[in-house]
């Protein structure tokens, strides 16, 4: 059996497959359907300093090989997470990572500082790329200055592994990646959703309440592979790839493009056990291609 365990900036993972924020709840929702401890890492729902109600319904539209969403970071706030959710997930024996979002650098830093106190949360993923909130979110992720400012603020407040999730809705994702690396990020994950829109032509209305949303699913995979390739060439820190991964073969593309680990998001809605099946498939693929370690194929594309 090929070795598929990886170490991402100090984060030791049994498999290189993580579940993406916002698609896997707090893990507990899937506990009947998949053994959570067989997943490399679970990234829980985006958490903000203060509670957020999110956007109005409808928040989702199915599109060719994908879906649009405009959930808008609905969550009960970091204090609720620490008091009520954390006790339920702290003993799950895998890496439980919190996705952190905010509307100003101070909020991001304060939220990260509170999570820093939680012993069994080994990392955070900083969301500077949410397309569905008016203030903050993606606004920070689309300029090198904005991205750098948030990451610097959080770096001062947070001592463990800091992953920064990048937006593809930019001119040069490599430039943004370099700026967050310089600001102190330990790893980057990409891509967040692509901004999209869909219209109900009979009703002559957008299909989402706030008109636009984030596109995910296999439809965005080639864009994601391209972004991972460009970023892996530009930075020295590990790159975590995501965007429409449904099979082990999809994941292999990301590894070859330069990703050291991957996340699965929308795929969890189609198959709740996909994260474990893809990990098994990666191992089988490596065996059948006479590779003894996943590292042999990471970044092989020149």
């Amino acid at each position: 059996m090929a070795n598929i365990s990886v170490n991402i900036a100090g984060l030791q993972m049994k498999t290189p497959v993580m579940t993406a924020s916002g698609t896997f709840g707090y893990g507990l929702e899937f506990a009947d359907l998949v053994n959570l401890e067989d997943i490399g890492a679970v990234i829980v729902k985006g958490t903000t300093l203060n509670p957020r109600e999110g956007n109005d319904y409808p928040r989702m539209a199915e599109t060719p090989q994908g879906m649009l969403n405009c959930v808008g970071l609905q969550n009960k706030g970091v204090d609720y997470f620490c008091q009520h959710i954390y006790p339920q997930i702290k003993d799950i024996r895998t890496n439980m990572i919190v996705n952190v979002s905010g509307s100003c650098p101070e909020d991001y830093a304060e939220c990260a500082a509170r999570i820093n106190e939680l012993d069994n949360i080994p990392a955070i993923e900083l969301n500077i790329s949410c397309p569905n909130v008016r203030q903050g979110g993606m606004a920070f992720g689309v300029t090198t200055e904005g991205a750098s400012q948030v990451v610097k603020a959080v770096r001062k407040a947070y001592s463990k592994t800091l992953i920064v999730k990048l937006s593809p809705n930019v001119t040069s994702i490599a430039d943004i990646a370099r700026s967050v690396e310089d600001a102190g990020a330990d790893a980057v994950s990409l891509i967040n959703t692509l901004m999209g829109m869909s219209i109900d032509i009979e009703r002559r209305k957008p299909r989402l309440s706030i008109k636009t949303g984030g596109l995910s699913g296999p439809a965005i995979r080639p864009v994601a592979v391209r972004c991972v390739y460009q970023v892996a060439k530009a930075v020295g820190i590990p790159v975590i790839g995501l965007g429409g991964i449904m099979t082990a073969e999809d994941a292999i593309e990301f590894f070859m493009a330069g990703a050291s680990a991957i996340e699965i998001g929308t795929g969890n809605f189609i198959d709740p056990a996909i994260s474990v099946k893809v990990a098994d498939g990666i191992s089988n693929w490596l065996d059948s291609h006479r590779c003894s370690d996943l590292k042999e194929i990471i970044g092989v594309i020149e």
Binding site: Y57, V71, F269
Partner: peptide, 13 residues
């Protein structure tokens, strides 16, 4: 309209 059916994606609120 819903996606996950499990209370994870928060689309069907």
């Amino acid at each position: 309209m819903m996606a996950c059916g499990l209370g994870a994606c928060l689309c069907c609120v």
